[in-house]
Design a protein around this nucleic acid. Sequence first.
DNA 1: TATTGTTATACTCTATAACTATA
DNA 2: TATAGTTATAGAGTATAACAATA
Lengths: 192, 192
Amino acid sequence: MSPVTSQRSARTDAPTAAGPRLEEDFGFAIGTVFRAYAKALEAAIGDIPGGPRGYFVLSAAVQGQAGSQRSLAELLGVDRTVMTYLLDDLERVDLVERRPDPADRRNRHIVATEHGQARWEELRGPVEQAEQRTLEALPAESREALRTMLCVVAGHLTQSEQMVHACKVVEELEGPQKRASPPRRARRRSAF
Amino acid sequence: MSPVTSQRSARTDAPTAAGPRLEEDFGFAIGTVFRAYAKALEAAIGDIPGGPRGYFVLSAAVQGQAGSQRSLAELLGVDRTVMTYLLDDLERVDLVERRPDPADRRNRHIVATEHGQARWEELRGPVEQAEQRTLEALPAESREALRTMLCVVAGHLTQSEQMVHACKVVEELEGPQKRASPPRRARRRSAF
DNA sequence: TATTGTTATACTCTATAACTATA
DNA sequence: TATAGTTATAGAGTATAACAATA
């Protein structure tokens, strides 16, 4: 079977019931775009330790948006222990720096080094190109619209998560009423 | 530091140079939305083996779009060996079935069982809800627009990948001229 | 006592290599 | 010889648990 024609050749069964085909499925689409962009971004950033994830930490640091390691880990959706290793690697190549927070010495404030700042500036072009190439199927205005919509959703989700966190804190302050979920182990990876 | 206020509290440094802030970054946004949707979808589909990935295989099977295991694996961005395990699990709970392709008995044609078809129908509501909840920050028309744009990009990317594959085949047919990349090992995961 | 961050360890997921069968 | 699929295994990535420092 030729790979170019495989798209239609498998329909030997009766025409399937109504319903969204895979090409019209939101999940399939965002998964595909996500993977493609991740791959393009990874190529664009070269040797930044930790790949795209390390790049986002650097971004946050450059922009002064990286608060504590914990809040940064939550923002990026990684475990706080993973953040430790990631920062070790980024610090080792002199891209970021951990600074103890004078206000609460348990916290580490993550800041970009001068070299990190410079490296980040260098990467802006290639990263932008990676995005444009990934979205090349869309006209320029649509790309902007897509980006804006995703940012709106992401902003909302980030806030919601913070609210959930805040609520949990309040909940616990108000009294421990029969935890619905005990410490809970054995989760599953959200691999797509 | 309160989690609700942490968004701005870290800016103790000089105001950073111009440039996209993290909230305006395409990669950060799509990563966040992707993770949130993956989580919501995983909750929605319950006990389907393989999580979202298993669900997409089932979708493809139901819609008669699952050709060979290999083409399906490529479409979903997973290794063909992973696809083997995934199908083992889905077959074990009677959701899909492997059928030898009479035309080329090396290929296995993946089809949904009756139970798989029924289960998939049941899931359409919950899956739709998961999508709507994830995108709740957008008005309904925008959600449609977002989905359409992502599908356009995904469709294009899928085709491109098939082209790349086809070109590689042609290239090899035309003669092995000093492979730029030798068999190549030690890749890196595209974790975001 | 609770929280941040670190370390060690166990586990899960993934991919490489080797193999079978088909072509 | 080349490809689809399977199996075994090694490797990468992740998360749990225990700990130290600070609040």
